[in-house]
Each structure stands twice: as C-alpha cells, then as structure tokens.
Amino acid sequence: MKRALPGTETVKAAIDTVLAEAAARGRRPTVTAIERLLDIPHATFHRHYADLIDVHFRPRIPALARPATPTEPSGSDVRTEANLSRLRKENTDLRRTLALYEEAIRQLALENERPAQRRHRSSTAPPQQARATRAVLNATPSRRRLAWIRSLGVALSRLPVIKGS
C-alpha cells in the first residue's frame, strides 16, 4: 500500500524547519535532513520535489565562510600530513610485497599442476639448471619456496614474515 506524498506546503515547511535548525546549530542544511524529517526515500523525494529543492532550498543555503588568507598549518595538520605520508609509503611497500607473493603463488601453482613434466624435463636440462630444478623438487615445501625465491634474486630480508605461517 502506497503512502500519500506530502503536499507542496508541507515540504516547504519542512525545508524552512531544516534551514532554521541548521542555522541554530551552525551547520550546513542538507536535503537528506529534509527527507528524514518527511520520512521520504531519497529517490522519491528527488523524483517529486526536485523543483522545490532548486527554487526554495538551494538559494537559501548560506555560503560557507572561507578564510581570506592562508593560515599556518597547526600542529595537528603537520601530524596528519606526516601520518598520511607514512601510510602512503607503507601502502606502496605492501603493494610491492603483495606482487612478490602473488608471483610466488602463481609459480607454485604451476609447479603443482605439472610435477611429472618437471621431473622429466629436469633430466634433459643443462647441468646447473638440472641441479637447481632437482633442489626445488626434492626440497620440503618451505625449502622449495625459499629456493624458488632465491632463484628470483629477491633478498629474503625484503620479504616480510606473514604471521601464522
């Protein structure tokens, strides 16, 4: 069962109420506040009352006051910037680590798909490569992973330790 939509005068009164409350609290009035006051979903409100928003609400929103001159950054701004910089660097490092682990997992998955082909191929490989392949195939799972990582030329100290492994 559909509820009846409020009339234009009711919506204008709600807009006036939201504008007055926002001014009293020192906050910016929002269309969402009007929708909540009227208990109307966002899409329905915009579908039926878009003209009232444009004509009766938006022109009456006070402009935000901006400082005329740039101010010195406060201590909290400096800390925030330092924290953001640290987080960006950490994010970059984690992305690099993730790429290394993705490649390691991909390689291990390929090895597990074709173990018989690997063993057969290792006997026809050049001696140095055959030794390296045998070392990888005969190693325990953790040694196999380490041997593969060494073959990539990645320093183990650059790889972080994953907790729980």
Rank of each mutant, 00 (worst) to 15 (best):
R95E: 10
I15K: 03
A104Y: 11
H42R: 13
L159I: 12
R95Q: 13
T124Q: 09
E102R: 15
Y49A: 02
G7D: 15
K2S: 15
H56N: 07
L5N: 08
H120L: 14
V154L: 06
I34H: 00
P59A: 07
T133P: 00
H56A: 12
W148D: 06
R27P: 00
S157E: 12
A99N: 12
A82H: 10
T17P: 00
T32G: 11
G26P: 08
H42K: 12
I149K: 00
A109D: 14
D77M: 10
S165C: 03
A135E: 10
R119W: 13
T140E: 10
A23F: 00
E21L: 07
P73G: 01
L156N: 00
P62L: 09
E81I: 03
D77T: 07
V11R: 02
L137V: 09
S142T: 14
A130Y: 00
W148T: 14
R114S: 14
V11K: 03
E35G: 06
L5G: 04
R60W: 05
R28S: 08
N83H: 05
Q128R: 13
A33R: 07
A116H: 08
H46P: 00
G26R: 04
T71I: 05
A22Y: 06
R86M: 11
A130G: 05
E21R: 09
A82I: 08
T80K: 12
A63H: 02
L159D: 02
E9S: 11
G153N: 02
G75Q: 09
R114F: 14
A4R: 11
D77V: 03
L152Y: 03
A132W: 10
Y101L: 15
Y49C: 02
G26C: 06
A63L: 06
A14N: 01
R96C: 07
W148P: 00
